[in-house]
Structures are given as C-alpha cells and as structure tokens.
Design a protein around this nucleic acid. Structure first.
Lengths: 126, 126
DNA sequence: CCAACCTTGACACAGCTTTGATAAGGTTGC
DNA sequence: GCAACCTTATCAAAGCTGTGTCAAGGTTGG
C-alpha cells in the first residue's frame, strides 16, 4: 500500500537517500523491506524522520547522540552504570538515599510526560 | 588538607594531566581551585576519575557519550524531547499510554537502584 | 527488454574530537 | 631566588562522523 521507496522518503523528509541509509546503520530508523530487499518507509517512519530533523536542529545535538540515547535505553547494564556514575555528583554533598532519588526521578517523569503530550499534540496537528 | 595537584591526580588515576583538563572542560569533573587557581582533586574526584575509566572501558563508550548523558540530565527540555522521540518506537505498535509508560519507567528504576547499590558496595569495599 | 529504479560496498573529503607537545607566564617551597 | 610546579593558549596529528559520489549488480514495470 502506501510505503515509500528510499528516494521518495528522502524527498518528503528532507534527508538524502545516503543519510537515510546512515540513519538506519546507526540503528535509529529501520524501515521494513520488500521480499527483494528494497526499503519501505511507512507513515510512522516518515513522521519519525521529520521529528528527528527537528530534534537535532532544535537542541544542537548529533545523530550519534541520539544513537547513544537509544543504546542507553536498550542496554540496561549500561544505563545503570552511566546513571550511577552521574548520580554521584558533587553538588549533592552526601549520597542520596534511594528513596530521595526515586522521588526525584518520579518528578522527572511528570516533566517528561508533559513533554510527551506536548509532542503528541504537535504530531496530531501536523 | 588532602587534595592532590593535577599531576598527582593523574598519577593515581591513570589519566594524563592533559586529559584531566579535558575532562573538566567537557563538564565531567570540575575540581576545586586554590586561591591562585591551582586545581585541587579531592578524594571524591579521584574516585570518580577511576570509576570513569572503568565505565568507559567496560562499555565501549567515550567521554563525549558520558558528557551527553550529563547534558541530558541537566537539560530537561532536551531529555524530554529525546525520550519522547525514542518512545515512539515501532516495536510497540500503538502509542503507549502515559500510564503504561510510567509503569515501565518505574520498573526501570528498580533495575537502576540495583545497579546503584551494587556500585555503592563496590565503593565501600574499595 | 530496457529505463529507471533499488541494493551494498568503496573511496574521499571536510570538520569535529581526542590527545600530545610546547610556549609564555604565575605560584610555591625550601 | 630559583627549581619545580602550576596556569592558559596554541599548534598538530590521528581518528571518527557525516556526507557525497561512484561502481557493479539486482528488480520492476510498461
């Protein structure tokens, strides 16, 4: 049905075909394939490609950064290790209790949910 | 009292003085300074420098990656934006409800707490 | 059956990151 | 007061990232 080829997807998202392959190689967007191996970009892929562009532009980050965030999310051991290293920051004088920290994290969730719903609104509008 | 100069800190942590300045510039470890501007590495700094080495070695990541994780933690708008982009992954067919997602995140916390306490044990032992 | 797509792989180049070396000058302890 | 540190700044080289282009070959639709 409505799945675009790599050139068509490039056209409508503002990336080049070359970059779509690169974005796939670093694991950010992996489109479906036809029997013979052609990439097929669905509506969701296209939307994510567009918001990816915005994400990079608005926050001055690179594809590698997003790829690392993805890796953090997929490799729990890594995420735990990085988080606990960062957690031991000097600003908080004595080590936080797990309790305190959980509360802090939950507040963070509220903030992210806010961002999430804002984003959903944007996407519905787009 | 017991605060090391940059060369001493380099000796005991395995970094070079050059790298300690670099690590400082990217915001990972910012030692105190004397009146005249000399860096003073305290026990906590040294411990963090050592665990930073392990973190990089064990997970095949770079200083830039840790710096990005720190940036994520400090810039909530960025964290929310990246998280919500990643959240919209194709594996979960329909968009998750905020509810579902919160539960998932809380499970993740349990995992991180586990990692944290493991780490604390290590540090106490060391 | 052929034009116009698609695939992977390779070479290439600009720019950024990581790291070292070196210079010019301030601080400190004996 | 001088040797041995420290500071910042700069030049430099090696390596990685992001991106283009091209080649050799498979797929597809009229």
């Amino acid at each position: 049905m409505e799945a675009l080829t790599i050139h068509e997807a490039a056209e409508t998202t503002g990336w080049t075909p070359r970059m779509l392959r690169y974005i796939e190689r670093i694991g950010l967007i992996e489109p479906a394939r036809t029997e013979s191996g052609y990439r097929q970009y669905g509506a969701g892929d296209l939307q994510r490609l567009r918001t990816l562009r915005e994400l990079l532009a608005e926050h001055e980050i690179g594809l590698g950064d997003v790829a690392f965030a993805l890796r953090l999310r997929r490799d729990e051991a890594l995420e735990g290790a990085v988080d606990s290293w960062l957690e031991a920051e000097p600003q908080r004088p004595e080590a936080v209790s797990a309790d305190q920290w959980l509360r802090w994290e939950q507040e963070k969730h509220a903030r992210i949910i806010a961002a999430l719903t804002t984003n959903e609104t944007m996407e519905t509008a787009a």
